[in-house]
Computed example of a mutant assay.
Amino acid sequence: MPKPRLNWAVEPWSDDEPLECVMVVPETRDTATFIFRAPSGAWFDYQPGQFITLDLPVDPAKGPAGNVQRTYTISSSPSRPLSISVTVKAQANSIGTRWMLDHLKPGMRIKAFGPAGIFSFHRHPARKYLFISAGSGITPMMSMTTWSWDQAQDTDIVFVHAARTPSDIIFRERLEQFAARVPGLQLRFTVEKPEPFKTWHGYQGRLSQIMLGLMAPDYLDREVFCCGPEPFMQAVREMLVSLGYDMERYHQESFGTPVASEAEAPVIEDIAPDGESRAQVVFAASGVTAACAETDTVLAVARRAGLNIPSGCTFGLCGTCKIRKTAGEVHMVHNGGISDEDIAEGWILACCSNPLGRVVVEV
Rank of each mutant, 00 (worst) to 15 (best):
R174K: 12
W13E: 01
W149S: 03
V330T: 12
V25E: 12
F44G: 01
A291R: 14
D270Y: 11
T289F: 05
S353N: 07
A285W: 09
Q69S: 08
F189L: 09
K322E: 12
L19H: 02
P57A: 02
S120M: 12
S83V: 07
I110M: 00
P26I: 03
E11T: 04
C351T: 01
V236S: 04
P194T: 13
R70I: 08
E195W: 04
V259A: 08
C313Q: 06
P166D: 11
D59Y: 10
H124T: 07
I343H: 08
V359G: 02
L101W: 13
M1I: 12
G66T: 00
A42L: 07
T320Q: 13
Y219H: 09
I309Y: 11
I170M: 15
P26Y: 05
F159S: 03
F121S: 08
A291G: 13
Y245Q: 05
P18K: 06
H103W: 11
V236K: 05
G357S: 03
Q186R: 12
D221I: 08
I52H: 02
P26R: 14
I169S: 10
K105R: 15
F36N: 01
D246K: 11
D59C: 09
A134I: 09
A92E: 15
E195K: 10
Q177W: 12
S79N: 04
Y203P: 00
E264S: 08
A327D: 08
T297Y: 04
W43D: 02
D45E: 13
V330G: 01
R109Q: 13
G96M: 01
D342F: 04
P140D: 07
A126W: 01
P39T: 03
G137L: 05
L356M: 15
V25R: 14
